[in-house]
Structures are given as structure tokens and as C-alpha cells.
């Protein structure tokens, strides 16, 4: 690949995605602060409500990020305008991937950090760190798959299906984790235990996420034209 990337324009497109996403991001940050404050109350009802709100924020954030920058733009036929810019398909793909990863990655990273602070600094058992990371790992995987589908498939129906199905699978994952003694028992203890099943699941989540993103970048990168 000896193509020269138009980095200034890629940067501008990423900033554009970021600015268009700011309102939703602000709402998610607000909801995230409320969720963390609820968790900080260290009461069972507040913990349940705070965790639920965190998951809602994460899922909504990932769906809005993809929907805003890809599906809405496709519907509004922004691509025709983008094609008039001095951009190659690879530039466009990289800008879309970077913009999406930024708008999803910032709230995801902040909430992940906040969750770890909650678990490690409140009376909650520290073993929940592994459990939380596995749930965050799933959200990351669901997002990567949804992003891959959104960039590959134009059908809005299939995209909606991919986003809902991949994120809803967090429920069976939570049930599955509860069934695996090597994960569920240490989650109630005050020590962080990385059991083999936990390491395998988290590794699979991270590797599959990277594979999905890598495949998308590779597939679009080799396209000679926008269509």
C-alpha cells in the first residue's frame, strides 16, 4: 500500500464526527456521573441502579456513535459530498474508524476507569474487577461487530439487528459468568483472581474485537473506489 494518506483532512473528518457527537456525549457523561455517584452510595439498590445505568450508557453510546457517523450520514447521502473532497477511500475509511473509535472510546475509557475506581475504593469486593472487565469486554466486542457490520452492510435493518443482538447478548453473558465457578466465586471475594476461564474469555473478546476492526480496515483499505 503505497498510497499517501491525506492526514489533515482525515483529522478534520474525525473532528467533525466528534463535534456532531458532542451533545450525545455530554448526555452520556452526565448519565455516567450519576451512575458512578449511585454506585458510590454503597447501598444495594443504588448499586443495582448504578450498574444498570452504566450498561445503558455504554450500550447507548456505542449505538449512537455508529448510528450518527455512519447510518445517518448514509441516509443523508453525505458520501456524495465526501467524494468531492481530495480523499481516497482509504482516507475515508480511516477517518470513519478513527472518529468512531474516538466517540466510543472516550466515554468507554472514562466509564471503565470509573468502574474500577468504584470497585477498588468502596466496600464492594475487589474480585468484581474481573467480572466488570468481562462485561466491558463484551460491550467492546459488541461495538466492534456492530461497527464492522455498519461499514460492510448498507441495510438499516441489518445494522439495527446487529447492534441490538450483539448488545443484548450481555444478558446471557452475565448468566454464563454466574454459572462458571472459577469466575463467580472469586467475584464475591476481596481479591482479584484471574482464573483460566476469565483470561480466555477476556482474551477472546479483545482478539475478536481487534479482528473485527482490523478486517474492516483491511477490507475497505483495498477498495479502489468509494462504491
Amino acid at each position: 500500500m503505497n498510497q499517501v494518506l491525506n492526514l489533515p483532512l482525515i483529522r478534520l473528518l474525525v473532528i467533525k464526527d466528534w463535534q456532531l457527537f458532542q451533545k450525545q456525549l455530554a448526555a452520556y457523561v452526565l448519565a455516567g456521573i450519576v451512575a458512578l455517584a449511585l454506585l458510590g452510595l454503597a447501598r444495594p439498590w443504588a448499586f443495582y441502579l448504578g450498574s444498570l445505568l452504566l450498561i445503558i450508557v455504554l450500550v447507548a453510546g456505542s449505538c449512537f456513535s455508529i448510528s450518527n457517523s455512519l447510518l445517518v450520514e448514509r441516509k443523508e447521502q453525505t458520501l456524495a459530498f465526501v467524494m468531492s473532497l481530495p480523499l481516497s477511500p482509504l482516507d475515508f475509511t480511516l477517518a470513519k474508524l478513527a472518529g468512531n473509535l474516538l466517540t466510543f472510546g472516550v466515554p468507554f475509557g472514562l466509564l471503565l476507569l470509573g468502574t474500577l475506581v468504584v470497585v477498588l475504593t468502596t466496600p464492594l469486593p475487589d474480585g468484581l474487577v474481573v467480572y466488570s472487565l468481562l462485561i466491558y469486554g463484551h460491550i467492546l466486542l459488541a461495538y466492534s461487530v456492530s461497527l464492522m457490520v455498519a461499514m460492510q452492510v448498507e441495510s438499516e435493518g441489518w445494522n439495527t439487528f446487529a447492534m441490538i443482538a450483539s448488545n443484548l447478548l450481555v444478558n446471557p453473558l452475565i448468566m454464563l459468568l454466574g454459572q462458571i465457578d472459577a469466575i463467580s466465586i472469586p467475584a464475591r471475594a476481596d481479591a482479584i483472581v484471574w482464573s483460566l476461564p476469565a483470561v480466555l474469555i477476556l482474551s477472546a473478546q479483545v482478539l475478536l474485537s481487534l479482528a473485527a476492526l482490523g478486517f474492516t480496515a483491511w477490507w475497505h483499505g483495498r477498495k479502489p473506489a468509494f462504491y
Binding site: 456521573i33 455517584a37 454506585l39
Partner: peptide, 10 residues
């Protein structure tokens, strides 16, 4: 003093 935001302080 807690690391998490507290409703009352906000």
C-alpha cells in the same frame, strides 16, 4: 473525600 462523586456535595 471519596473518589466517587457524591450527590450531596454536587
Amino acid at each position: 473525600e471519596g473518589l466517587l462523586p457524591q450527590f450531596w456535595a454536587i
